[in-house]
Structure formats: C-alpha cells, structure tokens
Amino acid sequence: MTSFFLSKNLFVDSNIFFKLDKKNNTLCFISSFGKVEFCMYDTSCFVIKEGQKLSFFYIFSEYEKRIKKRLILSKKKKLGSLIVFFKQLLFRLSQPNFCSITLIGMGYRSQVENGNNTLSLHLGFSHRIDLQRPNNVRFFVRKIQRHHEIFFYCSTLCESKNLGSTIIRFRPVSPYTGKGLVWTGAPILRKEGKGQFKR
C-alpha cells in the first residue's frame, strides 16, 4: 500500500548545537545563551536530522488520504505551527534576552565570584547573600557612577525576569529613603515622612 506524507524542513544556525534522541523522541538545543529540551509527545510525527537540517514528517496511508481529509488538514496546520514555534525558539537562543537591576544605597554592592558561578550581594545586612548561577543564565556586574548594576542574560526573558525578581525580594526599594533594589530605569515612588507633615 502506497503512503502519503507531509514534511517541513527547519535549518538550524551553525552557532546552535542540537541533538536528537530517537529513543525518547526529544530534541535538545544548546547555545552560548542557554539550553532547551523539547519532547515530541506526538508519536505520529517523525523527525530526521541531516547535518544542520531537521525534517518533520507525518505519514499517512492511501486510505487515510482519501477518507480522513480533515485529519490531514489538521496535521498540516499543526506541522506549520510546530515549525513557527521552533523558529521562534532558535531566534531566542541565538540572541540573548537580558534585564538589569540597579543597587541604590550606601554600601550596596555586588560582585561575581568563583568563575562567574556565584553572585555575592552586600545589601546592608550583617551578612552577605550568595546566589548560585543557574545553568541557563549568565550575569555580570558593572559599576555606573555610584551605583552597581547586575545584568542577567538568558535564552528567555521570563527566566531572567524570575531571577531578577528573586533578588529584588531581598531588599525592595523603600518608598521613604529611596534605597534598595529596583529594575533599571523603573521610577521610584516616594512618600513623605511624618516629620515633613505640617502641623
């Protein structure tokens, strides 16, 4: 019995390393900005690796081609959506998404230690705070005028934002003194103290 198939090709940049695990039907993409693993839960979709090209296939029998036209149409749409998803994923892996935090306050500083694997924070406490670097995140510290800034680079903006939000919780900016951790460029809403109110 003859077979009919739908296919789409995806070309991967040479700066991105990827591997195909046919046993678990998973794809792994690795770049200098992060690592992403994707599991193909749809077992009817076959993936073939040829150099820097990935080919996705849906195979149908001649009977399904004549009878199940709606099924073939839905698989064709799903295949197109899958290719668009992987193109967006590879674009994010090739260009880093980053965010930055500014440390405002006397003695507030940060530094990178242990070969860019540990972020040390001095936030006015009696102890310092050490954070281990996640596998898919890179950060570095830069001093601008009197303030320190921490930059987070990651394959997805969501992960870098999550790490930045975790750090901000250690010392949120105070509305009275204006000191603390804040997103770079974000406005600081100040409040008047009790001593400044007129009687």
Rank of each mutant, 00 (worst) to 15 (best):
M1V: 15
F5N: 11
F5L: 11
K8W: 05
N9F: 11
D13N: 15
S14Y: 12
S14C: 10
N15Y: 12
I16E: 05
I16D: 04
F17N: 15
F18V: 07
K23S: 13
N24S: 14
N24Q: 15
L27W: 05
F33L: 09
F33T: 09
F33D: 01
G34A: 05
F38C: 09
D42S: 12
T43P: 08
S44R: 14
I48R: 12
K49V: 03
G51H: 04
Q52M: 08
K53C: 07
L54N: 05
L54G: 05
F60H: 06
S61F: 02
E62T: 12
Y63L: 14
R66Y: 11
K69R: 09
L71R: 12
L71F: 09
L73I: 10
L73H: 12
S74C: 10
S74G: 02
K76L: 09
K77Y: 10
K78E: 12
K78D: 10
K78Q: 14
K78A: 13
S81M: 11
L82T: 05
I83G: 00
I83Y: 00
V84I: 13
F86N: 01
F86T: 00
F86Q: 00
F86D: 01
K87E: 12
L89P: 00
L89A: 03
L89V: 04
L90E: 00
L90M: 00
F91E: 13
L93E: 02
L93I: 02
S94M: 08
Q95W: 08
N97T: 07
F98K: 08
T102M: 07
T102F: 01
T102E: 11
L103P: 02
I104K: 09
G107Y: 02
R109A: 03
R109Q: 08
Q111W: 07
Q111E: 13
V112Y: 01
V112R: 03
E113G: 02
E113N: 09
N114D: 13
N116W: 03
L119S: 00
L119E: 01
S120K: 14
L121G: 05
L121N: 03
L121K: 05
L123Q: 05
S126L: 13
I129K: 09
I129L: 14
P134V: 03
P134N: 06
N136K: 07
R138P: 01
R138I: 08
V141C: 07
V141S: 00
R142T: 13
I144Q: 13
Q145N: 15
H147G: 02
H147M: 11
E149V: 14
I150L: 06
F152Y: 12
Y153K: 14
C154F: 06
S155W: 15
S155D: 15
L157K: 10
S160F: 02
K161I: 15
L163F: 14
T166W: 10
I168M: 11
F170D: 07
V173D: 02
S174K: 00
P175E: 08
Y176G: 04
T177E: 03
G180Y: 01
V182R: 03
V182M: 03
A186F: 09
L189H: 09
R190M: 10
R190E: 04
E192P: 03
G193P: 06
K194I: 10
K198G: 07
R199E: 11
R199M: 08
